[in-house]
């Protein structure tokens, strides 16, 4: 009985992706499958997945990091500057440093100062965007030609796979990853197991920041240069990739990497397909909102069904009166 439900939970993201492919395949008369568009889909998905590989660390704890859009722009801007100053070699270290610092700041705010992560990261999102505006104004900083190779399919795909393997290893096969998901389930339990929860949280936010910065480099190299609108709305895209893939909002053991990897092309395909169908900016954004709500809702429903085994027979009152001191 329960086994069957796990299956639904597992294959749901694939079903959605498949359905989306069929719908847009028909609606655009096969235009989505044109080679150029497929490459475009891949490039956008790759950036989303890379950023998501970081965000998933925070999401698995039940936290939120929506700095990604602005952080990507800031990291991209700095790395482009570094690229101009020191050549292509300077780009990655600079971006990673920027991402790590931002993550460190956010992590300390959340872990030590107890500011809810969505509030802190929302503030950061706005502040960092303002920072980029100030830094660049209307300026565009070009990246050195020598870095252009990373935009090629033959580099990007292996790079993506390597990143997925590294992150997958950390996330699934280390105590650190276990603790992250355990924090999503019950933070106190981990604290009482003598584990330094604050440290884990901060590291998770740092990884999230670093991956956003790496996504920033791939994006800026693709664009050729950095401007101040880079990455606008990117954080929502990454968030939705996770939710549409079925990663539960509250984090915990149900957080799986493959859900992100399937969810990212799904959301990219959705937006791409709508553009190909000729939908305007307003409509696309509206659909994005509806999909966000629907995805989160469906994940909740499926997840609670799969997890709701029987319920406790004893303490019916305590169940009813939960959350009391």
């Amino acid at each position: 009985m329960r086994k069957k439900k796990i299956n639904i939970n597992t294959i749901m993201p694939f079903l959605i992706l498949g359905g989306m492919l069929i719908i847009f395949g028909i609606a655009t008369h096969g235009q989505v499958f044109v080679k150029q568009n497929l490459l475009n889909l891949f490039n956008q998905s790759a950036a989303t997945i890379i950023a998501g590989l970081g965000m998933i660390f925070v999401a698995s704890m039940g936290g939120t990091d929506i700095t990604h859009g602005s952080l990507l722009a800031v990291a991209a801007a700095f790395s482009a500057m570094a690229g101009q100053a020191f050549g292509a070699g300077g780009m990655f270290p600079t971006a990673i440093l920027v991402g790590a610092l931002s993550g460190l700041f956010l992590g300390v705010l959340n872990a030590k100062f107890k500011v809810p992560s969505f509030m802190a990261s929302l503030s950061m999102l706005i502040a960092l965007r303002a920072f980029v505006n100030w830094l660049l104004s209307a300026r565009v900083i070009m990246v050195p030609q020598s870095i252009k190779f990373i935009d090629g399919f033959s580099f990007k795909l292996p790079a993506l796979i390597v990143l997925i393997i590294i992150i997958g290893y950390i996330f699934k096969y280390t105590p650190f990853g276990t603790y992250l998901r355990a924090i999503g389930e019950n933070e106190n339990a981990i604290k009482y197991a003598g584990i330094n929860v604050d440290k884990i949280k901060i590291v998770a936010f740092m990884i999230s920041g670093i991956m956003a910065a790496i996504a920033g480099i791939f994006t800026i190299v693709r664009m050729g240069g950095s401007n101040n609108t880079l990455g606008n709305g990117f954080e929502m895209k990454v968030m939705m990739a996770m939710f549409i893939g079925g990663i539960p909002v509250q984090g915990g053991m149900g957080t799986k990497l493959y859900k992100l990897i399937v969810g990212a092309p799904t959301i990219i395909l959705l937006e791409n397909g709508m553009v190909l169908c000729g939908a305007g900016g307003g409509v696309t954004q509206g659909v994005r909102g509806v999909v966000l709500l629907a995805a989160v809702y469906l994940t909740m429903v499926i997840y609670s069904k799969f997890n709701g085994t029987g319920g406790s027979k004893s303490g019916a009152i305590s169940k009813l009166l939960k959350e009391c001191t």
Partner: peptide, 10 residues
């Protein structure tokens, strides 16, 4: 329940 276990986990 509050400080020890992860109730929703396996």
């Amino acid at each position: 329940d509050l400080d020890g276990l992860m109730l929703d986990a396996s």
